[in-house]
Design a binder for these strands. Structure first.
Length: 110
DNA sequence: TCGCTGACAGCTT
DNA sequence: AAAGCTGCCAGCG
């Protein structure tokens, strides 16, 4: 039930709802928000989230890879943050990502 | 002013 | 089953 380009606010809302120690994917958010723009715009919204209270480090691609780690001001900043929350990261990939995955369409149960 | 790329994901061949 | 192409919005070249 989205209005218009304010979708980025919805993205922030969802990302903030992500519990500590959990991670989500761009596709999960895009699907939950019914973003026809696909996951790309979600990532773009994260770009705008740079500096906001949005824990973008908890958002990764569908394979659990820290695709946007390079955008955190450092190549290991994202990993450091994830590890600080108890999330194990190995080779830029989230360990047991499938288990740590927090899907809004599932957790929020619509 | 026109075209390409980009924090991705899903469909088609 | 695996690999490649397209879609979407917006910022840059």
């Amino acid at each position: 039930m989205l209005e218009n380009k304010d979708y980025f606010e919805e993205v922030y809302r969802v990302v903030r709802e992500v519990p500590t120690g959990r991670v989500t994917t761009y596709g999960a958010i895009a699907r939950y928000l019914s973003l026809r723009a696909g996951a790309r715009m979600v990532g773009w919204a994260m770009n705008a989230a740079h500096g906001s209270d949005v824990p973008a480090h908890r958002v990764v691609n569908r394979i659990g890879v820290l695709s946007g780690k390079h955008f955190f001001g450092g190549p290991t900043v994202m990993q450091e943050r994830l590890e600080a929350e108890g999330i194990r990261v190995e080779d830029d990939r989230i360990v047991e990502f499938n288990k740590l995955l927090w899907d809004p369409s599932v957790e929020l149960a619509v």
